[in-house]
Design a binder for these strands. Structure first.
Lengths: 238, 238
DNA sequence: CACCTCGTGTGAGATATCTCATATACAGTA
DNA sequence: TACTGTATATGAGATATCTCACACGAGGTG
């Protein structure tokens, strides 16, 4: 993790993203630019995050830990999106942690300085509401889809999402839980993908050999229901 | 549908619900109280709703119509909650319609008069963000659960939700779609419930005979994950 | 009335998915 | 070293769920 403050690169990110336009007040003084390496934790479990993050580029995954102690993969985040907005709103139902899937660049607003300003800023809150509304809509729509389709389709979609650079290496336990199926069954279908030549096993996971086939399986789920992605991101500007 | 304006009953609802406290501006002038009968449409498909609703008492269900023309049951709303907030935010992904499941009482803010005030009111937007955040959290948490459990558990939960006064009469097609299973399979499990004495068939649907059993099946899903309900409502105040 | 659509209801066979049992490998630790 | 936990891996049999094919009744419409 690398934090940049008062740095030309920060200016660069700000001007590219129009991030400051989200706020009525002048947020620039509170802004830092943070680089995360793959696998870094952007927000750690149990800790109230120091920042409100705005993912400028990269991809991250969300985990929650259930009361029984199990850490479960819940969702993916794609730039551009907020991270830490739930905690800012004190919607703190479970411990959440967000982990970078690939190197990530975040604009980060120091909450110490401006939590109250954020929570009183109508322009920001309106953007946030719209963001959450869209996220919700996507969840709901994808829920309808997801429930209906068998594992091969969903797994294909999952692999495409979770495999940066064509290299898939999620732990089977997590993947199974995320996909809502048994470990055993996931293994069956993975093995089937290998047999069909979609995937190849490599030292630390699986490598995508036939991306087309996976895309085809994924798209079979999206026909008829215009949901661009199974997962929440923020590409629908208000 | 019965609309009350400038009426003692409006005052009564306002004072009981603290609805006006959600806003910075004086919203009272825009408030009406609307009664819906069971099966009335609170928001109609394709129409941008005239009001932002706040469900004071009652229960409603949300439908969306998919591009293929099918109307699908998506979610339930329990008082207290907002209705029409998505449309206010212009999150208009699909045609949504909300239908009263039992007689419902709504406070309704006339959008004509105060749309801009709402979208500029930090206090309201903060409440709304928190509401949407909670809704999202519930969706996500329930998603994890829902996917994991077989139909009997989910159906039990569904029946309890969808059966006001112990009388269940959703159309099987809708129910099947909502539950993400086949019409055929739903019928199997319904028949099984009847055989086990949980339900009895009556003229226009099914009657709950053994509520305890259904509750037990529902609760089996909630152990280990502290989600009070599968569905979005607003009982978690910020 | 004949005809259509739609919701209900049923049966039989195919698939998807789960449960349980078991084996191996690796990392931590007493 | 032995012990423990965790992830990977595979097999066999049990369930849950799907697909397809069909029958019946109610409501609308020519």
């Amino acid at each position: 993790m690398r934090i940049l403050h008062n740095h030309p690169e920060v200016q660069n990110a700000l001007s590219k993203s129009n991030f400051l336009d989200i706020f009525t007040f002048d947020a620039e003084a509170y802004v830092k630019l943070i680089h995360f390496d793959a696998d870094d934790e952007i927000t750690k479990e149990g800790e109230v995050p120091e920042y409100l993050f705005y993912l400028v580029s990269g991809q991250a995954k969300l985990f929650i830990t259930l009361p029984n102690g199990k850490r479960t993969l819940i969702d993916f985040f794609n730039a551009p999106c907020f991270i830490g907005e739930m905690e800012l709103l004190a919607v703190h139902t479970h411990s959440r942690s967000v982990q970078a899937l690939v190197p990530c660049v975040c604009l980060a607003l120091s909450l110490d300085g401006c939590r109250e300003q954020l929570l009183s800023d109508a322009r920001f809150l309106r953007t946030l509401s719209t963001y959450l509304g869209n996220k919700n809509m996507r969840n709901v729509a994808s829920l309808a889809e997801t429930k209906t389709y068998p594992l091969p389709n969903r797994l294909a979609s999952f692999i495409l999402l979770a495999a940066p650079n064509g290299h898939y290496r999620e732990m089977h336990g997590n993947a199974a839980e995320y996909l809502g199926v048994t470990y055993r069954h996931l293994l069956y279908v993975l093995a089937d993908f290998v047999k069909k030549g979609y995937l190849g096993k490599s030292s630390s996971g699986y490598t995508i050999l036939n991306k087309e086939a996976l895309i085809k399986l994924t798209q079979a789920m999206h026909t008829g229901l215009s949901v661009s992605s199974l997962f929440a991101n923020m590409d629908t500007k208000e």
